[in-house]
Design a protein around this nucleic acid. Structure first.
Lengths: 230, 230
DNA sequence: AAGTGGTCTAGACCACCGC
DNA sequence: CGGTGGTCTAGACCACTTG
């Protein structure tokens, strides 16, 4: 156990047992450094974790306080579909439905502002049943290698996550009634709810890909976790 | 612009223009420190952001590499319901439905392992229409002040987020068909899909609260963001 | 065994911002 | 203005883990 971990843990305890309550003004770094008998940098190291967790707020001159929040934050992790399926103990299956490129592709999202695109539709199966319909746009300006990829064996989901770095993600989760396409491929009736995940990724402002993933609604849920610290 | 920000930005550029591709082994800290003309600590500061973003992976002895990912991560932020509603420009309304305590409360989640609980059911409105049904358990062992709270004016959602710190959150998102209770309060037909958010929060292993928030499905979506760096 | 990242120190200086 | 947190340095030592 390192010094900063012990100090962080001690601070957590003080918050947990109400010695430090939301809004409470902590001693300065210098003072805490003296109290714990470490260098100022070690105090900063301990606090920075708690700031990231949203438990502390720091402002120059004003000092450090126990946070009063206005929202809940947690980290949403979406694995590669194949691993999601096999992780549930099911047999994974994949089928490429369609690839289009050039003039045939229409950027309905307006996310790519005129970049060259390819569009891919494919289907992921769990134990032979349709699990997810993937409808994806990839910018070949940002990822020229995608042009040479044959997505008949490896899904674009898997290929992109592993091969292409990104620095920004935007995800949208919602439910909508199945349209014709979703109904046909997921083998459900039109109008039945589907759970939709839409995701845009960028690397340094450059749009990489946009994907819409549709699941049969009732059989799907997604989990989020924060602070496995303990 | 601080030194570590410029270095981080330069590193991002090298990843973006494929000079550093996934799996690429970066120079050591010492060498980068010499290259950029700064102390080793400054290099570490620049890299730590990229590690947190998931763009770099570091291992002792093995060195630092551009990450090959196996999943997408992003931060899910769920605001206080009142702010969510007013943020959409709608009129917020709140109604307490029911409070139970002591023996009347049944910990169906088994999340609290025998702690003293109170249960609260309440309804949030947007422009007079039911927006969210909140069904919540609070551990009065962890939050004794909750006992004295009268939740007729301020929702438990709002009170808890602001007053009670937490260090761990677990969230579950899914769609399910409305049961009798959901149907009655949300004014939809039984069996119509509802979008459900379940959340458990803890502070240092101690369970604080469990909440199930139900929305009429089709009118609801939720967004997630990562790396607004830029 | 050796080389890498990780922790820690002691100190200087900076820049924001509340009083 | 002054006090706070934020950045940066130069260096020592540690501990993991791979070859």
């Amino acid at each position: 156990m390192h010094a900063y971990e012990e100090i962080r843990s001690e601070m957590l305890s003080r918050i947990a047992d109400h010695r430090w309550t939301p809004g409470y003004l902590l001693p300065h770094e210098q003072e805490l450094a003296r109290e714990f008998g470490v260098a100022r940098g070690t105090i900063r190291r301990a606090m920075s974790d708690l700031v990231d967790q949203g438990l502390l707020e720091r402002k120059r001159k004003a000092g450090t306080r126990v946070a009063q929040r206005t929202s809940h934050s947690s980290t949403l992790t979406i694995p590669i579909v194949r691993k999601e399926v096999t992780g549930k103990g099911a047999q994974y299956g994949y089928k490429l439905l369609e690839i289009k490129s050039g003039e045939d592709v229409n950027d309905s999202t307006n996310h790519f502002r005129g970049a060259q695109l390819i569009q891919i539709r494919c289907l992921h199966f769990a134990d032979g049943q349709p699990y997810q319909l993937e409808d994806r746009l990839i910018s070949t300006d940002a990822v020229p290698e995608a042009r040479d990829q044959d997505f008949s064996e490896v899904s674009p989901n898997e290929w992109l996550v592993e091969q292409v770095p990104y620095s920004a993600v935007r995800t949208l989760l919602r439910t909508e009634p199945a349209d014709v396409l979703q109904a046909r491929h997921l083998k459900i009736r039109q109008g039945t709810p589907v759970f939709v995940i839409e995701r845009q990724t960028r690397l340094e402002c450059v749009p990489i890909t946009f994907v819409k993933m549709s699941h049969p609604a009732v059989s799907f849920s997604i989990a989020t976790e924060t602070g496995a610290t303990v």
